[in-house]
Amino acid sequence: MCTYLTERVAITARAKGTPGWLKVTDASVYFDHPAELPAEHSLNIDLLAPEKGPSARVAVELDPAAALGLARAVLEMLASAPQGLLPDDVAAAARAHLAGAMG
């Protein structure tokens, strides 16, 4: 099915695609048909620079287990970063997620 399940997140980030680095301001996270991954559904992430148009996009299509592994790795990295290098509330939230929903 075409799920159209989407989470849209405002972000501050840079993403490299073609032809180079993009100042991305939005991310779409969705579970739907991939364009390229040989699977019927996948967890897809688009990093977007909407003011530059729809082609200003860095995209990944992950199988569900890979997506979970990636999410866990991101949380573990944020939770274990040396104190003072990132906001305390971000580190605390990462630790809480790891202990709770993903524990």
């Binding site: 075409c2 159209y4 779409s28 969705y30 364009a35 995209a59």
Partner: peptide, 20 residues
């Protein structure tokens, strides 16, 4: 309309983000 001239996958991403 969402993505004139864009590649089909970029256009599909833009259209689905707009709700289809």
């Amino acid at each position: 309309r969402e993505a004139p001239g864009a590649s089909p996958d970029d256009a599909a991403a833009a259209a689905r983000a707009a709700g289809g």
